[in-house]
């Protein structure tokens, strides 16, 4: 069966989605990711969707799920590289993916993850209240 590879980089997990997603594939990714978060005790998940040309409500939900599930396992999720057309479509669809952190590219996404994690270590305050949605 098709699977999207998940790379482990230190405390982070890195996923680059290079193929067109269908529902089953997205669901597999969701369960694989949470398994990996637990296995490696990861602190951050970075999902690169720069090659994804379509995100509909199902895949939007999966992204939200991953973010929330990781959060309760104490890992931050950042989605990076969303294409402009995809962003406009998601907003028009009525799915602005609130509560998911986004960054322009992998580099910025890594910075964001690092800043969130060091912040967590410095003080256990909630970084952003909107995260908990």
């Amino acid at each position: 069966m098709d699977r999207i590879p998940i790379l482990k980089m230190g405390d982070f997990l890195l996923v680059t989605i290079q193929v067109d997603l269908y529902d089953q594939l997205a669901e597999t990714l969701e369960s694989d990711l949470v398994q990996m978060v637990r296995k490696y005790n990861s602190k951050g998940v970075l999902i690169d969707i720069s090659a994804v040309s379509i995100i509909d409500s199902f895949m939007g939900r999966i992204l939200g799920n991953i973010s929330t599930m990781s959060k309760i396992m104490d890992a931050e999720t950042v989605v990076v590289g969303m294409q402009p057309a995809v962003a406009i479509t998601l907003v028009e669809l009525g799915l602005p993916l609130k509560g998911i952190h986004c960054a322009l590219n992998v580099e910025r996404g890594m910075e964001l993850l690092r800043s969130k994690i060091t912040l967590d270590i410095q003080d256990d305050d909630d970084y952003d209240d909107s995260d908990t949605e």
């Binding site: 379509i54 199902f58 294409q83 057309a85 995809v86 406009i88 479509t89």
Partner: peptide
């Protein structure tokens, strides 16, 4: 255009599901 294409294909994706 790309944006309209994306919107159409996303709508199609929803309906096919």
């Amino acid at each position: 255009g790309l944006v309209n294409q994306t919107k159409l294909i996303t709508a199609a994706s929803e309906l096919v599901r």
